[in-house]
């Protein structure tokens, strides 16, 4: 078991422990949150979940939307420092250029927690960093497929994210690790669908043509749910049954994929949780309670959802989060 998996389990455990006793400890605290923007559904969901989490804990959340600009984020953080907030959450838009403003926060003795993405800055400038493990997400998907096909030969076609983007690279690597042990599962074709539905559909169409009308494809692995939704339509257009003739597994757990899972057209998705704030608040609660220093990198859980996990209910729970 890798160190990352251990960390993830530790974080999951911490979350489980914290959600009762410690939740009260940070009520009344003022916490600033500098969000990147709302460029994707997931980002919007992260914002709404963060607000939810703050409300549950009685935290006064100061929200600042940076509209994809680092200078706005730096301005917002300086504003938080000037207001004398108790802690600052930042979802950093870029990796570099944070040293000065984080030093200012440190000098003001305001703990900073990074959400979702890491930065290139000395580790003592922030309390901790909460993020998902994209490699792990890919591996969970791969391991699910290996157990699902149970030893039978399976040709997988892969719909990659945008070429060169870190989720595309990491989710590909993770999936390959996940299927490495099973010689019967192999990736036969791999192309980029740019994380979009229409490209996912177009690429899947081409894969079906070049795989004997789809007869040679056992499963499709998509780096995000949107491409999977597009691929499902392409499979149906080719006269095949997605979920049966061709297994569909993807990552993100957005609401629409649960509709597909409920309809039996998709088989599994791995959650990229929008709840980055929950673990961050928990870490703050422990820190303020008795000075417990959290791990430097808190990894969120990469939970697998299939038809057995009440997909219709999951859809209902997620549909209003802003995805």
């Amino acid at each position: 078991m890798s160190i990352i998996t251990k960390l993830a389990l530790a974080a999951g455990l911490a979350t489980a422990l914290s959600s009762g006793a410690l939740a009260q400890d940070i009520s009344g605290k003022v916490i600033g949150f500098s969000q990147i923007g709302s460029e994707s559904g997931w980002r919007a969901a992260e914002t709404s979940v963060t607000r939810q989490q703050a409300e549950e804990r009685g935290v006064d959340l100061k929200f600042a939307d940076a509209q994809q600009k680092q200078e706005n984020q730096i301005k917002a953080i300086r504003g938080f420092i000037a207001q004398g907030v108790d802690a600052i959450l930042v979802a950093p838009v870029v990796a570099t250029g944070w040293d000065d403003v984080l030093t200012e926060a440190k000098e003001a003795e305001i703990p900073v927690i990074l959400l979702d993405r890491g930065i290139d800055a000395p580790e003592d400038l922030y309390l901790t960093s909460v993020a998902s493990d994209q490699v792990l997400e890919g591996r969970v998907a791969g391991e699910w497929l290996v157990s699902e096909v149970a030893g039978e030969d399976c040709n997988v076609v892969e719909l990659q994210g945008t070429v060169g983007s870190s989720p595309a690279i990491n989710r590909k690597q993770g999936f390959e690790e996940g299927i490495a042990s099973a010689a019967n599962v192999t990736i036969t074709q791999s192309q980029t669908g740019d994380f979009t539905r229409s490209k996912g559909k177009e690429v899947m169409e081409a894969f079906l043509k070049s795989s004997n009308g789809g007869a040679d494809i056992c499963a499709v692995y998509a780096h995000n749910d949107d491409m999977a939704v597009g691929a499902i339509q392409a499979i149906k257009d080719a006269g095949l049954k997605p979920g049966e003739d061709i297994l569909v597994v993807s990552i993100d757990a957005v609401p629409d994929i649960f509709t597909a899972i409920a309809a039996g057209e998709a088989n599994a998705t791995v959650e990229l949780t929008p709840n980055m704030a929950g673990p961050a608040f928990d870490a703050l609660a422990a820190y303020w309670a008795d000075g417990t220093m959290p791990e430097k990198f808190i990894i969120t859980e990469s939970k697998l959802y299939t038809a057995e996990n009440d997909p219709a209910g999951e859809y209902e729970r997620r549909k209003d989060l802003g995805y």
């Binding site: 460029e39 994380f195 979009t196 539905r197 229409s198 559909k201 949107d226 597009g230 339509q233």
Partner: peptide
């Protein structure tokens, strides 16, 4: 046409 194709309007990516 492209909205009909994916049965949805994807404001972020449609026609990008």
């Amino acid at each position: 046409i492209i909205a009909g194709d994916i049965r949805g309007a994807d404001a972020n990516n449609a026609g990008l």
